[in-house]
Amino acid sequence: MLTIKNLHAEVEGKQILKGINLEIGKGETHAIMGPNGSGKSSLASVLAGRDNYTVTEGEVWFNGKNLLDLSPEDRAREGVFLAFQYPVEIPGVSNLNFLKTALNEIRTYKGLPAIEGRDFLKLTKEKQQLVDFNANLMNRSLNEGFSGGEKKRNEIFQLAMLDPQLAILDETDSGLDIDALRIVSNGVNKLRDAEKSFVVITHYQRLLEYIVPDFVHVLYNGRIIKTGTKELALELEERGYDWLKEELHLKEA
C-alpha cells in the first residue's frame, strides 16, 4: 500500500529525514518510536504534505501513485489521513459543516454525488457512537475550547468519518490521561480491519499496550535503525534508546 524509498527531507535548510525506507502492507499496523527530535513527526508531516518540508531525495508510493506529486488535499482524497499531534482550533467553522465539506470534497474527487443530509446525519451518529465522541461537541466550532482529550477524540472521530486507507497517528497519546488514552485506543481498534493500515507514532510504549502493532520501527537521527515486533517496544521501555544508539555507532565505526 505504502512504499517509502530512501526518503530525505529538510526543513528550513536543516536535514531532518536522512534516508527512510519503509513498506506498509494492507491491514498492517506499524509503530514508529524514537527519542525526541529523531524525525518521527517530520515523517508524518512529509507524508501528509505539509509545505514547509522539502523532499530532497527519495520516493513515496501510495497504491501505485507518487504521493509526493499530490497536494495535501489530494493525498487525503486518495486515502491518507493524518491525526494531528496538535489539532488546530478554528473558531467559526462548525465541526459538522467542516466534516460535511471534507466528506463531499472527497466524494467529488471520487466521482460520487454529494451525501444526502439524512445519510450524513446517520453516518455521523453511527461513527460518534463507535469512537465514543461527545455529541455536544458536534455543533461547536472546530476544536475551539475543546480539552486536550476532546481534541484527540475529534481526530479519531474524523478518521472514522472519512474512512481512509492509511491513517497516521502523530503522538495521539501525548497529553492524554489513562482514561482518555483507553477511549482513543478503543476507537482506533474498532476501526482496524483487513483493508486499513495504521502508522502509530509515539514516544511511549504505553499506547502500544492498547493499540498492538504488527511491527515496531525505531527512528533515530532521521533513519530507521531497528525494526522488530511488539516485543521491541517493551525492550525500549525497559532499556531506553541508548543501547540502540551504541549498537548503531559500533556498526558505523
Partner: peptide, 15 residues
C-alpha cells in the same frame, strides 16, 4: 493561518 489551512486541506478540502 497556514496551520489552519493545512489542517483543512489534510482532510481533503481543496484550497
Amino acid at each position: 493561518s497556514e496551520e489552519s489551512m493545512f489542517y483543512l486541506r489534510s482532510r481533503g478540502i481543496g484550497e
